[in-house]
Design a protein around this nucleic acid. Structure first.
Lengths: 110, 110
DNA sequence: TCGTAATATCGCAATATTACGATCACCATA
DNA sequence: TATGGTGATCGTAATATTGCGATATTACGA
């Protein structure tokens, strides 16, 4: 035993967890930041920007895509990736919800 | 090789990644939600609420505490955990920043 | 001080992640 | 049809996570 007991939690909890997990590695945070900075949402210049191999970056891109945080469309013989606003907003409103409940509560208890 | 190449990224990226990673498991999302729901921020009723052993929950609590997402104070012979607003707000404003940059950009490119 | 409830930690097994080199597949264009 | 650039995938090694039972540890009350 020891595998992720992922079922036995709600859909919502799993959905948030999987988005958060995708952002749970500095390389992927860096990739998202890069995609935001580059205005054209260009593709694999990323390989030159990060100290990781092409294979590894491709894996991270896949993780981000699986989580719905980015999407890519074929653009000639390259691929154009960009951040998917919908998913970002979903995470954003979830965190905002937590934050709101906290301030509604008033004092932090401990 | 194969270990996390975590260095070679900025402090900020690592900080966000570690907070996000802490939320990257449904059990931990569930724990945070529970701590928000319970008004008194009570301790280990959690063991009864989740289908996980006490040892496992204690581990998840530690992960959340290490990430700064919760804090605990000793309360008699029990422990009172609660969500740490400061860290939630940090994540919140980071995600809001991404979201803002996206809408500033106008159309999603791909 | 003894017993008991609440937590933390240790040690282990199962599984997942991270990273890379080596290919493979695809498309454009020479 | 070759050739080169772009990206995905495979195989593999190193490491991390997840989960649990067993065992501390700590604090309270009898």
């Amino acid at each position: 035993m020891g595998a992720s007991k992922t079922d036995s939690f709600t859909e919502g909890q799993q959905a948030i967890a999987s988005i958060a997990k995708a952002l749970g590695h500095p390389a992927r945070v860096a990739i998202v930041e890069y995609l935001l900075k580059v205005d054209g949402c260009i593709c694999n210049d990323i390989v030159d920007k990060l100290p990781l191999s092409q294979a590894t970056i491709s894996q991270h891109l896949r993780a981000l895509k699986d989580a719905g945080l980015i999407k890519g469309s074929i653009e000639g013989n390259a691929i154009c990736y960009c951040v998917e606003g919908k998913t970002v907003k979903r995470l954003q409103s979830y965190i905002a919800g937590i934050s709101a409940k906290l301030t509604a509560k008033g004092t932090e208890c401990c």
